[in-house]
Computed example of a mutant assay.
Amino acid sequence: MRPAARVQTAIELLDQIIVAAGSQGAPADRILAQWFKENRFAGSKDRRAIRELVYAAIRACGPVPKNGRAAMLRLAQMDESIALLFDGSQYGPRVLNPNEAAAEGGVAPAWLVEKLTKSEILGDDAAALLDRAPLDVRVNTLKADRATLTLEVESEPTAAPQGLRLLTGTQIEQSPEFREGKIEVQDTGSQLACLAVDAKPGETVVDLCAGAGGKTLALAAAMDNIGKLIACDTNRGRLSRLPARAERAGASNIETRLLNPGREMEELEDIAGQADAVLVDAPCSGTGTWRRNPEARWRLTDAELAKTIDLQAYIVDLAVQLLRPGGRLIYVTCSLLDEEGTDQMRAACERHHTLKPIRLVLPAGRERTGGVRLTPHHDGTDGFYIACAEKP
């Protein structure tokens, strides 16, 4: 494909992504994957170039663009080489009209920028939310150790005790270390969230929002496969991926439980008041993960955020019921909005007077009212809020 044709293709894909963002349709990566599957004429270099154009345009726009052309025009304002490709050539974008308006730049839609600012995410901290994310892995101590593991690719240690950072784009899942379960792809921030759980061999630990089990596997390694580790979720598809991952990792103390939304305690009644630690990796707005999913900031609405905050409080209340006296509640959210972090934990302690906040000391991050905040700019991780409270 000629460069101009790649730009026009990116514009057409952006049109689909913008529509999908407004209707909660397929995410950008799935839209791209489907187009590549249906258009085999596009070679590997074409696919790489189109992908880079699409994501660069998404990152360049703050509010939702009017259409894909407006988004690409915004990128063209920042890169003259792209502007030159609006030449009207065959399969390329039509010639630029001097009166055409490019999409607006910025970090996010105005209402979200206001909320980030109130949460003291501004300037470099805000801009870094749209950088490209690095590739981090966690060395699985059930099978290996960072001090002795040798990878064939370039890597450097991160702040997490078993974390390694690789070059972006490294095909690590093709490596023998990955296939043998010696390493897992996991952002350093997620690894530090698991470190905050302080799971010990012999304990009863509940991962209440386990998803596909990335954090569950880290907890199993911390427990050295000794004790009871219960991974729960309401999403059957995501939870069903955990058993195969656990087998590859050599994690043998994990029990999965599929929960019925609104009736979760039916599956948890037998462990009520028994858990030494409950990890609540809460559903959230995902403002801390925009480096990986930049179009997510176009999907979020104020109403959706309010529903998410209510759900977080509901899950925290479930977690409290599972704790034994002296048990630990670890609250984690990959959001940088105080409404989902410090405000949520403060409200939880007000609802449950038996909860006592515990000061966390982690290898990275800064204190943020009752917990620790990690940001891409300051810590090189995804954005997180991590807090812990004890039930005396």
Rank of each mutant, 00 (worst) to 15 (best):
D145I: 02
S175Y: 08
A231R: 05
D136F: 12
E173M: 13
V185C: 03
D46L: 08
N140H: 09
R6H: 13
D233F: 11
G237H: 11
D15L: 07
R165E: 07
Q312K: 11
T170V: 04
A277P: 02
D302K: 15
T354N: 09
L135H: 13
R373V: 12
A33F: 03
R94F: 05
Q171W: 06
E269P: 00
L374S: 12
L258N: 05
P261N: 09
L311N: 12
V316P: 00
A71F: 09
G62P: 11
E114W: 01
D276K: 03
I309M: 05
E267K: 15
P294T: 01
A160W: 08
V332R: 02
E267W: 04
K143I: 00
L84G: 03
T141Y: 03
G250A: 04
G22L: 09
D302P: 00
V139T: 00
A212M: 11
V137Y: 04
L195N: 02
L337F: 09
A20K: 10
T9L: 12
L305A: 07
G22F: 10
K37L: 13
F178W: 15
L135I: 13
E100L: 11
A42E: 07
D224L: 09
G341Q: 06
D46M: 04
L116C: 03
R51N: 12
H377K: 15
S23D: 12
I31C: 07
G181I: 02
P93I: 01
Q162V: 01
E114A: 14
H377C: 10
R248H: 10
N260H: 11
S81E: 14
A33I: 01
G189M: 01
R263L: 07
T148H: 13
A144F: 04
R236Y: 06
S252F: 08
E152R: 13
I226L: 05
L13R: 05
A210S: 13
A277G: 04
K356L: 09
R59F: 07
G211H: 13
N97G: 06
V139N: 01
G189E: 00
D317L: 08
E180K: 14
L75M: 12
M1G: 11
E184A: 10
V64D: 00
D382E: 14
G341S: 11
R328M: 07
P3I: 01
G43H: 10
P109F: 10
T168F: 03
T289P: 05
K37H: 14
G327K: 03
C209R: 09
G62V: 02
P93S: 10
G88V: 06
E295H: 12
E255G: 01
R6S: 07
Q24T: 02
G214C: 06
V332A: 02
L142M: 10
K215D: 08
K182G: 00
N97H: 13
A199S: 06
P176A: 00
L259D: 01
K37C: 00
L322V: 03
